[in-house]
Nucleic acid binder design. Structure first.
Lengths: 346, 346
DNA sequence: CCACTATTTGTAAGCGCTTACATGGCAAAT
DNA sequence: ATTTGCCATGTAAGCGCTTACAAATAGTGG
């Protein structure tokens, strides 16, 4: 019984239930608009035939997809995982589906993915960080796709953002570091080009140095990719320079874990000989030994909030209100006082 | 110039370039079918108007989306990250886009996501592990969506798979463990219900015990979620039982990292007092201390191979050929000989 | 029992694209 | 010059759905 040869359409269901396609459509989308008796009959047909609406057709006709897109720089490490999970959970609860792509930190790829997602009819878009061609924002506006920026908060920018102040967060950490007695501070940062979060973190440390009367130009800085090995290499590089720092502040926990590995390889003990700090407070931070002193970012909270706000924008109930999430420092064992006679390589 | 008020359609471009919609479509999809002069004119219009084809419309008309869907159990840890990244890279190279969802290890959610992805017109689907309702496979067949199972290889199953033998892989590791002198073996496994990979890993260890004349029922087993904390709790549980094991084999590296944390909390030193092993060889395995002896799974290779095969199936050039990827043991410091007089809690 | 309103269902016009088929133009062949 | 054949382009029919509007049915008060 019935056509087993291919997927059933609305028409098939309508025929089977002896009603018009409009009625079937209504049963599915606004059941209260059809009388119970009919609805039951239709739903039975839907059930029996294993009907799934064709999304493309629905999107075309309704010009709404209940889909949100998100483009994150990478899926390879856990930096974005928790926040994104929370984002998705909230979306699910509100009846939206999430489409994720990763751009490998390449603006070109990100641009392409944005077009792909827009072409796919997403109702809204989550992007990480503010910095990208103005043209992209124009394109998005043109297509009437609301955008929400996360992982970065910036009041003086047109786009709505739900995030935290990368500069202030690391400033506070740097202050802690300085208070512990450090003055020879080095930093391992992710590549700053096209990455405002990384930039702001560099700025935050420099500002803290200034604020404490330390010449910010004295800070040794290495930029690298966000990988454990890169962190390890950068650490080795830094520790091989003429003046050894007493603390290496890292742009995130992954880099810090790498630095730790570099230290182990060089036989340098942390925090006795050199301190190391991270950023993000992902699971990794607690697992490595010594566990990392780092900036705790409430990823879950950010994800939830971002989803709520973006949906509000999509549904037209908000023009876009930015939220700044507070971060705080988590002190663990990787940060201690500098050694008495800090060694140099001279 | 031109209509700035909303997104341009094929029609708008056609009008602008003074050709028919068919010609514009051809310029975009099979440029060799239109003469250069026209093509240049059309492309210029496309460019100037910032035209992006409407995907939903394209899918509807062409019944092909160049999109592959993937549903993984979780994005929260790195277990699937690397393999998936490789999968995506390969797809990109071949002109396909990847849509990822995560099911939180819940069959119900997975089922829903499958429907969502199919409704979205994915040309093929990547699923993790074999075990799921037969009905789902029928549904997929009905909709003509090829499926590829990864992270698990099973020759005696209808579906095509690209993966490894979970049973054999851990069997080999267990053999190593036994060869090192252990006989009181405990295991922390992920929940086995609905998870054939977890099941096979339990079986692999039991088989190894049998093969070495050890009663498999003597193995203490805890099932739990795949989270660090769960691993830690399970470890504490295991070590508090009357007969302490001399080695705790874990269902994956995340669990093993948790076990390590549990050991630290209990003040038990690894591997001196108890050995711990993992599975997967994700980055984490190398970062924890002591680094984990584990089963190395060539995730990248698996991801690439899976993408190639799935595309072949989608394009009709393959009926679906399964591939078994080889794993191997990586020996690090978390596994050593059992202590001379292994303590019990008696 | 009728007129009128409210409710349920049907009709049909698109949504933006691809593609089978038709058309027209031009070069080579007759 | 006429025919043939080929290639570039145009025409128009859907793809499966939603929804404005029309129609039919049911309910209500006079």
């Amino acid at each position: 019984m019935g056509n087993t040869r291919s997927a059933p359409t609305l028409d098939d269901v309508a025929k089977e239930a002896g009603v018009s396609t409009a009625t079937v459509s209504r049963c599915l989308n606004s059941p209260e608009r059809v009388v119970e008796k009919t609805r039951i009959r239709v739903m039975k047909a839907v059930e029996e035939m294993g009907y799934t609406p064709n999304f493309a057709a629905r999107v075309m006709a309704a010009k709404q997809s209940f889909t949100i897109g998100a483009i994150i720089p990478t899926m390879e490490n856990a930096i974005f995982a928790r926040g994104l999970q929370a984002f998705q959970d909230e979306l699910r609860e509100r009846g939206y589906t999430l489409l994720v792509s990763s751009s490998a930190y390449k603006p070109g790829i990100e641009k392409e993915q944005i077009r792909t997602l827009v072409a796919r009819g997403v109702d809204g878009l989550l992007l990480i960080g503010h910095e990208r061609e103005e043209q992209i924002y124009e394109y998005l506006e043109r297509h009437r796709v609301p955008v929400l920026i996360a992982w970065s908060y910036s009041p003086d920018v047109r786009q709505t953002s739900v995030g935290f102040s990368n500069r202030d967060a690391i400033f506070e950490l740097a202050q802690n570091v300085i208070d512990a007695g450090h003055s020879r501070i080095a930093m391992i940062s992710g590549f700053t080009e096209g990455n405002d979060r990384a930039q702001k973190r560099v700025v935050g440390i420099r500002d803290a140095l200034c604020a404490n009367g330390i010449d910010p130009d004295s800070m040794e800085l290495v930029e690298t990719t966000y990988e454990i090995d890169s962190g390890a290499n950068a650490f080795v590089d830094l520790m091989s320079r003429p003046t050894r720092p007493t603390v290496v502040m890292c742009g995130n926990d992954v880099l810090a874990a790498g630095a730790l590995r570099g230290a182990r390889k060089m036989g340098i003990s942390v925090p006795e000989e050199v301190s190391i700090t991270g950023f993000d407070d992902i699971e990794l931070a607690e697992i490595v030994s010594p566990p990392l002193t780092t900036v705790h970012v409430p990823h879950r909270k950010m994800g939830h909030k971002a989803a709520q706000e973006l949906i509000a924008m999509v549904e037209g109930s908000s023009e876009g209100a930015s939220t700044c999430i507070n971060t705080h420092i988590v002190s663990r064992q990787s940060l201690a006082k500098p050694p008495k006679n800090a060694a140099t390589n001279k």
